[in-house]
Design a binder for these strands. Structure first.
Lengths: 142, 142
DNA sequence: GCATTTCATTTGTATATGCAAATATATTTT
DNA sequence: AAAATATATTTGCATATACAAATGAAATGC
């Protein structure tokens, strides 16, 4: 059912949740090619490009909580795509060779994903929306 | 951490998820006053204003799946705020008197919620964003 | 130098939601 | 009218994520 049939279209709560779920689905299908969830894939990409990143930094970059990053890393470690090396209170994350090999495919996925939705709004409207979304996100309390 | 520190700001996946979570949080805190989640609250409001609505219609209006609506209704029924009456393959949802009493408070919550974020973007930018979000949502596959 | 506070990460538990299959009724076809 | 199909709802299970408390290590105060 199209949202246009709903009186709740104008409610930011349902609109933002609905959009997030649609994007989640599009992204999941896209990264299924490499058998990773979108979050796992982005995490791996950062670990490849920034060897030794720490979970806290990853959480900040991906706008996730540290506990969520821990869970994502566990799975990537199970798959032998990254290793965690803990020293004192910090832990460093490194992509394994097997993980590093994926970089080209991962980058292609990023592109494909973008192609999957970019045409709908076009560059202008898309950029404006993104900018407003970030502005609103940033202004809302942690 | 502000998203401005992240290279992934421009990725619609993380932007839309981050925004949805922020809105979820704002909305949850807001409707905690009546001890309901935002979805439960909206569902109840529709049931009050549209006596006999069916779960499928509710799902359409709130952009949720029927199975999710079933779960929401179970909880509202537990709290004696609605009743479900099944006839044949359809079921009709009615707010109980106890549920109906809440209407004024619920409407005030809707207002408060709106006040909680509307000032950040202002009416113009806010409306544009909402319109783009819906346009994108609608265009993405079910 | 021991005690306290701070910081980074992890663990246990909870929420919101979806998908796919099951159920149960209604409608259409033959 | 029996069989096939369509529709509405519910149930079982899975995913993505967060919060709060626990852990463990480092830094600071006295």
């Amino acid at each position: 059912m199209k949202t246009s049939e709903s009186r709740y279209r104008q409610c930011m709560y349902f609109a933002s949740n609905a959009l997030a779920r649609k994007m989640e689905k599009l992204a999941s299908e896209n990264w299924a090619k490499v058998d990773l969830s979108p979050s796992h894939a982005y995490l791996l990409m950062i670990a490849i490009e920034e060897p030794g990143v720490q979970p806290g930094k990853l959480a900040g970059e991906l706008q996730l909580k540290p506990s969520t990053v821990t869970r994502l890393l566990e799975k990537l470690e199970d798959k032998k795509l990254v290793v965690r090396i803990t020293e004192g209170k910090n832990t460093n994350v490194y992509a394994t060779p097997k993980g590093q090999e994926l970089l080209p495919v991962l980058k292609r996925c990023v592109d494909d994903f973008y192609q999957g939705y970019a045409h709908i709004l076009g560059p202008n409207e898309g950029a404006n929306m993104l900018s407003s979304m970030n502005k609103l996100s940033d202004a809302l309390p942690e």
